[in-house]
Design a protein around this nucleic acid. Structure first.
Length: 225
DNA sequence: AGTTGATCATTA
DNA sequence: TAATGATCAACT
């Protein structure tokens, strides 16, 4: 039987475990845990993240909390190309569209999630079968003041639009480093939001995503200082 | 229905 | 070809 990973007791232990994964393939990890690797991610899009959560001992399940609440650390896998550039934007959290009055940046889900992130870059070119994709060197990141300010600005702009009833006018083009995009099982999912005249309307659920240029900067800073 | 894990695939 | 908008699965 495969090992049953326990939650890491410290950030050092978490980092140590993560660093041991560098160079391994997703197939290696899956084999250890006795898990089947999908041939592609057309269906199991979150498979990689869940595999690493299990391997590193993150709390299972999907709650709005950090992956390692005791350590205050969030785990994120990020697909990169051969040059180490992000291939996809990074989902941060769900965007609440009602009851937004009184929420400030410091107490926001975005600020909480991004306070401390363990990034695990993984080869993500679609031509590489999932089982053969290699894990690169993980990095622990805390946003610096510039990054924090950029995130805060975008968050405030987008939250303003939501509170002013402009949800329907938000597109992925808004936001310098962070955008809002649909986040649902399909187009039929609807949730409450405020309309332009202050009335309640139904709209597609949305989520916050980090732009590739932003995550690219994070990876670059970590390995080129 | 909401929120997590994300990547897919059509469009511009 | 890159980015936006859409979608898939598991779990609460």
């Amino acid at each position: 039987m495969p090992d049953k990973p326990t939650p890491p007791e410290s950030i050092e232990q978490l980092l140590s475990r993560a660093n041991e994964l560098a160079g391994l393939t997703l197939g290696d990890i899956a084999k250890e845990l006795d898990i089947q690797v999908p041939k592609n991610f057309k269906r199991e899009k979150g498979w990689t993240g869940q595999l690493l959560e299990l391997k590193l001992g993150a709390k299972a399940g999907s709650t709005p909390q950090q992956d390692f609440p005791d350590l205050g650390v969030e785990l994120k896998t990020i697909p990169i190309d051969i040059n180490g550039m992000p291939l996809e934007t990074t989902y941060v959290c769900y965007a609440h569209l009602t009851d937004v009055a009184g929420i400030n940046w410091q107490d926001s889900n975005v600020r909480n999630k991004l306070n401390c992130v363990l990034w695990i870059p993984i080869e993500g070119d679609r031509q590489i079968p999932p089982a053969q994709r290699r894990i690169a060197t993980p990095l622990l990141w805390r946003p610096n003041h510039l990054q924090l300010n950029a995130l805060k600005q975008d968050w405030e702009e987008l939250m303003d639009m939501i509170s002013l009833g402009d949800v329907e006018n938000i597109t992925a083009r808004h936001g310098e480093v962070m955008q809002i995009r649909p986040k649902a099982a399909d187009g039929s999912a609807l949730t409450d939001a405020f309309g332009a005249d202050g009335s309640k309307i139904k709209t597609r659920p949305r989520g916050f995503y980090l732009r590739k240029s932003f995550t690219q900067q994070i990876l670059h800073d970590a390995f080129n200082d």
